[in-house]
Design a protein around this nucleic acid. Sequence first.
DNA 1: TAAAAAATCACCCGAAAGTATGAGGCGTTT
DNA 2: AAACGCCTCATACTTTCGGGTGATTTTTTA
Lengths: 161, 161
Amino acid sequence: MQFLRKNKMLIIYAVSLAILFLLLKLFEYKLLIIDHSFEIYAGTIALLFTLLGIWLSRKLFSPKKITTIIEKEKIVEKEVFIAGPQHFVLNQKAFEETDLSARELEVLSLIAKGLSNQEIASSLFVSVNTIKTHVTNLFYKLEVTRRTQAVEKAKKLSIIP
Amino acid sequence: MQFLRKNKMLIIYAVSLAILFLLLKLFEYKLLIIDHSFEIYAGTIALLFTLLGIWLSRKLFSPKKITTIIEKEKIVEKEVFIAGPQHFVLNQKAFEETDLSARELEVLSLIAKGLSNQEIASSLFVSVNTIKTHVTNLFYKLEVTRRTQAVEKAKKLSIIP
DNA sequence: TAAAAAATCACCCGAAAGTATGAGGCGTTT
DNA sequence: AAACGCCTCATACTTTCGGGTGATTTTTTA
């Protein structure tokens, strides 16, 4: 009896299969006289067993097993103060609050490296005027008026290393 | 082309089915001469399409649809490293190697704070020209040509915070 | 697909930064 | 005392920055 209970599902599947085959066997003879009966028969089997497969898989791979993998992680930021040689991690939150675009951040980090507008323009393959525009916009967003100030603020906000 | 991309999966299924039917059709003739060929054929179809069904369902009813209902939130603490209030210690050795004078260091640190020459001059009660001279000299000693570079280098050398 | 946001470029102008050069005062070092 | 380094200041000149305005193109988003 224990065996029966433990393998309940398996037995149901087996019986279902047997019944299906039986039904198909019955149809087999009735359909033999019809044109293309074989194709129809094969198609029926295909369809039925596809459905069976779908049903089977939904039973077997029940949500439980799937969900354990895709549990949503809720990230809680916890401030940890450390010292020593910092491997820089961009402060995403602060970065977003500044409203800086990716390009502006790029320019900003090059400014911090001590490059002139012309040098930045060359290294990014754009005109100096474009860099000037970026610089002006980024100054506005950081609320500063000089590149040294911009670097200062950006470092304080952990936007650049 | 967009149609192709959007219905990629559908097309794959259709092609797979077609190929399966083709294979089965080929086997059909070869197996006709064998005893119980029909049963074997039907069985093969059944098996293949069961597998197809399983595969199909796993693709179609992807975790997404199931999980939205049973989404679980898992709280994970993520350490976020924040530039803590670093207690700066001047690198005496590096400082001496630069040959910078005390006054020059003073000017340098004000430059790093984002002050203009005029502002530095005012805060040190000297003329702008004096500051310019200091700046020029300190650039020479640090082997740079721009204040942003000077700040970069000085920070790297731990001469300024 | 229309609207919004980014990225691109240009031109002008004034302010700031940077270069070069010279020079006077002041304390220490030889 | 002469030499040296440092701080101070000035003048003159060049280059770079930064502000303002306007426009086009590309990308993203609603």
